[in-house]
Design a protein around this nucleic acid. Structure first.
Lengths: 224, 224
DNA sequence: AAACTGGATATTGGATCCAATATGGTCTAC
DNA sequence: GTAGACCATATTGGATCCAATATCCAGTTT
């Protein structure tokens, strides 16, 4: 059986979830706006049931806030939240890299190289969605190599929380260039098996993006 | 209006969620068992809808695993998982305490003292549920004092994940006594404003429980 | 005997309908 | 004119019904 690996979501709730994530990242669902279940369901061509289940997932991830009988509102992300998320990432990503580096094999390094190249390629195509996806893939290839599923899971949550701002960051060509340089630096440390240097590289990488995003956040609060 | 602070859940899904948490902690819903939505709904006197929404929340927290069209299964917690959770707690609780200690005021210390006393009191009453609840309250009073909501949230998830085993731990009187001693030690460090000592006390506290629980886990795998 | 095909059944996924609650406006009383 | 009560309406919460999928078993074929 030559069946496709996977193409369409097998359930409506997954489709809804995927689409809502897109709406949140692109800002079509702006922070602070209440979510009308029926309107959303109509728009997506389903009933309210799968919408509600998707919303429960997003609530758990902190993307929407819920109040009984009053419904869901797209969560706001303040500068303090952003800083906190990055601080937590600092602690956890250091741990992931510390554990992962000694475990990396030649094959892993090749895969990582390819992933980094994919980020560059997407950048040249100026495809923001692809850049963010490829960037995430690159970093989580590394994190997942630690073999600590709970840690990966927690890191994913933290990344998800600030996804909205990642595409903003990648929109500037200078940032795009810098990210590629930083990835190269990180790769060099990984290839040298130098966990400490890798952690430092990742830290610098984060510091740049948190600075850029929090600047953007304070000057023009993204949507109204 | 002198309305009660809070008494009964305003929605069925919350009631279901609370009851399911209880079933999970007490082991009435044992790891590995499939969850039949209709049976559970009947047992709780509601329809399947609120059950499904509660399950989505529990899925997000990692308490149950989901497969499309096949349903939910109570998640298994392996020794590796347990160790991983405690390692992550180590990293994050240290941060919470580091930030919280300088912020603690006299009133906070009094509240913490009272919470610690409540753990002791519940222990004397031999009420396991109360002990675990009071213990959790005590520790999160401290963590929350850091004023980092995302950190608190993540820590809660980690605590939740291993809640099943906490009551097992408290079941032994020797552990109960040790916990009280360790709380005293932690309180002393907090009162002295010594973050480093507090972090060390918390670390010792954790180390004891992870050791005890993982021993229990390897010898008699809790349910069959 | 083993493997595949087909269908019966149990269970989940989704849609629709009804109930309960919150919200906004209007009317009345002072 | 303002405050409070009350009612109309929009929206969420929950129950029931139907559809889709997976699983299991029998039957058949090689």
């Amino acid at each position: 059986m030559t069946a496709a690996i996977f193409s369409k979501p097998p359930t409506a709730q997954e489709a809804v979830l995927a689409e809502m994530r897109r709406l949140l990242v692109t800002g079509e669902l702006a922070p602070g706006t209440p979510i009308r279940q029926e309107a959303l369901a109509d728009r997506l061509g389903v009933s309210r049931v799968p919408v509600r289940e998707a919303l429960k997932v997003l609530e758990g991830e902190g993307h929407v806030e819920y109040s009984a009988h009053r419904g869901y509102v797209v969560a706001e992300l303040s500068v303090e939240d952003l800083v906190e998320v990055y601080r937590l990432r600092e602690l956890l990503e250091a741990e992931a890299i510390r554990v992962a580096v000694p475990k990396l094999r030649a094959a892993d390094l090749i895969t990582l190289e390819q992933a980094a190249a994919e980020v560059t390629a997407a950048g040249k195509r100026a495809d923001l969605a692809d850049v963010t996806a490829a960037n995430r893939m690159f970093h989580f290839l590394l994190f997942d190599a630690a073999g600590l599923p709970r840690l990966s899971r927690t890191l994913r949550q933290l990344w998800d929380a600030t996804d909205v701002y990642r595409s903003v960051y990648f929109a500037l060509p200078t940032n795009l260039q810098r990210v590629n340089d930083e990835h190269d630096e990180l790769m060099a440390a990984l290839q040298a098996g130098d966990a400490k240097a890798a952690i430092a590289a990742q830290a610098a990488h984060r510091a740049h993006s948190v600075e850029a995003v929090s600047n953007a956040l304070t000057t023009q609060p993204l949507v109204g």
